[in-house]
Nucleic acid binder design. Structure first.
Lengths: 341, 341
DNA sequence: TATTCTGATGGAAGCGATTCCATTGTCTGC
DNA sequence: GCAGACAATGGAATCGCTTCCATCAGAATA
């Protein structure tokens, strides 16, 4: 037989559907005896109310907001953003639930996105660490689906919350220069990862910009790019350190890669920070423990702000201005030091 | 005005509701001209179809499964489990979406759980790192809500996927004893954390059991418990190492605490593994990089298995047996060594 | 011109609940 | 013994869509 409905339960229990509904909703206006009979019928049939049908007639409905992201590679960033989103969800007491999607590739992203738009389970979308093509944006717009991104800073006409990566690169460069470093290397991801994602390129851009302004050279061999991976980063750092004229400082595009740099330095017999300064980007939990100097970005905060902004988009007619994250800042710890002149 | 419905659109466009529906669903049987008119009306009204109403009449419906968990403190564990769940979701091509809840406290858990059961958006529940009270279990059962847990191994009559923590403690103890250690300390969480969660107690139990069997002492001062925190763990480890008769090896209940032990040892001027062996539990990404010897558990796998089992519960009438995770194993790296006799 | 076919369209019937109103029976108090 | 109040109940109307069937205009065929 098909899955039982409330009518089946009513028939089985010999009562009206209204009574069954009342039992389901713990209404006090049901006689204890009747309640028991209905409950028995429910159990016997293994009846479970249909959530859709249940919400539909209610005046106040649950809404869903969707979060779509890469496969959770950057654990802490993922977790903290999620936490931020949930926090804001509770804080605003929005009657919203959060649906999580993830994509394995850009094709899969495309596919998922059309499914999401087609089924429309979700009334708003937060896109994390994924770049939207123009077609996808058009699609979202024609579907009247509000959306906000986390971690993009391309000059696009859609709202994105996230660290300004270019500025982050500038900050790291300024900091190292201020410490007296003149020969600074860069370790980061190849420019376009599988998700069309350009963090590395952006951070390098700001970094290079400041070096240029200070008339400091950034020879090609000082820029080492590779797949996002600890072992790869370690190799890149080793290459950097065995150069005939090695840098005195390294800017790693993220803390994980910075750890790899420290690792490589250790293996090369270099003392940190005496022989080499290393600055990362992110400020992970481990960075605190390891004592890594790094550029702090606010993951949890970005999740929170993204959700708030999305809700605003969903409610307000004139779309509010995209909020800005607090400025990036260097957290100085023990892997960098001032160079004696 | 209220949010527009398909009828408003039909009226505005001067067509029937059937036609509007066809446009919404990209049906080919709509004249291009009509489609345009309808699309304009949709845009003008800012119409967005109601997802509930949309699903309801469909023969094949999306189902939701819920995941409820603590506030994502253990980043990697959280992320990998999520990934496992999503993986299984796609792999099984179940028409399911995943709704994520998180709780801040046990009271909040109770509250959330009743909301979930009351609204029933979700047709199955995965409970991560949270202990269910008997009342909660009864509630879930009477609601006919299938559920499975991740990371519990209490002898309860509900399905839980997760490392056998007691066995994990045994394995660590056996390993260190086999290496010739006779004085082994333990660093872990206080027994009952805010979520009624007893991982530490369980791991210690297995650990103590094996030590007892080997007639090795485990003096009270060798067992150091504290809140789950790096700094706290570091202090605990320091205390352990400054004992008049310090242990030659430490079993830390998780890798993060193991890192703290390494840190403390370094500060105490001890060489690893020459002066002290440290074994952790989890096998985090960083453990690999740091070279930490640890007991490996399979986070992603547990997510996958939990989802599969949940789906089985939702479909099959005779509930299948709870699946078992692959056995725990020690991953030997560079923080432990054999003691010379 | 009469007939058939086809593609486009309108709208009633349902999806499975909630809700409200009408109805029935019980119990007061006079 | 009866009106009025009240608690428990049944079921129609409703939520906002999809879907299917009937209808119709025009093109194609005879």
């Amino acid at each position: 037989m098909d899955t039982p409905t409330i009518r089946d339960v009513a028939k089985k229990a010999g009562v009206g559907i209204g009574t069954v509904s009342r039992v389901l909703n713990n209404s006090p206006k049901v006689a204890e005896k009747t309640r028991q009979i209905v409950q028995d019928a429910i159990n016997e049939l293994g009846f479970r109310p249909n959530s859709l049908a249940r919400q539909l007639p209610r005046k106040t409905r649950l809404r869903n907001i969707g979060v779509i992201t890469q496969p959770f590679i950057a654990y802490q960033a993922f977790a903290e953003r999620m936490r931020g989103i949930q926090l804001a969800l509770y804080e605003l007491e929005s009657q919203c639930e959060m649906v999580l999607y993830n994509v394995r590739s850009l094709e899969h992203f495309d596919e998922q996105l059309s499914i999401i738009l087609q089924t429309a389970t979700v009334e708003g979308l937060i896109v994390i660490d994924l770049d939207l093509s123009d077609e996808q944006i058009t699609l979202l717009r024609t579907s009247n689906m509000p959306f906000v991104g986390i971690n993009h800073f391309r000059q696009r006409d859609w709202p994105c919350i996230g660290a300004d990566n270019v500025e982050g690169g500038r900050i790291a460069a300024r900091y190292l220069i201020e410490l007296g470093h003149r020969q600074i290397g860069y370790v980061g991801d190849t420019f376009k990862d599988d998700f069309g994602f350009q963090t590395s390129a952006e951070r390098l851009k700001g970094f290079r910009e400041v070096l240029d302004q200070a008339h400091l050279p950034l020879p090609p061999e000082y820029v080492r790019l590779g797949v996002h991976d600890y072992a790869v980063a370690k190799t890149l750092a080793s290459e950097l350190l065995t150069l005939p004229n090695p840098p005195t400082a390294i800017f790693a595009m993220c803390d994980l890669q910075a750890f790899a740099c420290l690792d490589a330095a250790r293996e090369a017999g270099l003392r940190i920070p005496d022989d080499l300064s290393v600055i990362g980007f992110d400020d992970l939990e481990m960075s605190h423990h390891v004592g890594l100097t790094t550029v702090r970005q606010h993951f949890e905060r970005s999740g929170q702000m993204a959700l708030r902004h999305l809700l605003a988009l969903m409610h307000d007619d004139p779309p509010p201005p995209t909020p800005q994250l607090p400025a990036l800042e260097v957290v100085e710890r023990h892997t960098t030091r001032r160079l004696a002149d």
